[in-house]
């Protein structure tokens, strides 16, 4: 059964690789969520001001609505 370590290694790499990738997505999602919350707070404090960064995105319509 000398083949089993090869099989085990392959499956571990697949599962580990996919898990690492999904974790990296989750980590980046968390960054985006925190930034979105920060922008939300900024808007809440000063609803009349939409930052330049926001104004340049797909979020233009939402920004217009906010104003």
């Amino acid at each position: 059964m000398t083949e089993l370590p090869f099989v085990a290694a392959s499956y571990l790499i697949v599962i580990g690789g996919l898990a690492a990738y999904i974790t990296s997505i989750a980590r980046r999602e968390a960054v985006v969520r925190r930034t979105a919350q920060a922008i939300g707070r900024e808007r809440h404090h000063d609803p009349g001001v939409v930052s330049r960064d926001n104004a340049a995105t797909d979020d233009d319509e939402a920004a217009e609505a906010d104003r």
Binding site: E29, V32, T57
Partner: peptide, 17 residues
């Protein structure tokens, strides 16, 4: 994964990271 990664990019665009 495709849906989730696309959503991540949409979130980034929305926040203009």
């Amino acid at each position: 994964a495709l849906r989730r990664r696309t959503a991540l990019e949409a979130g980034r665009d929305a926040a203009d990271l």
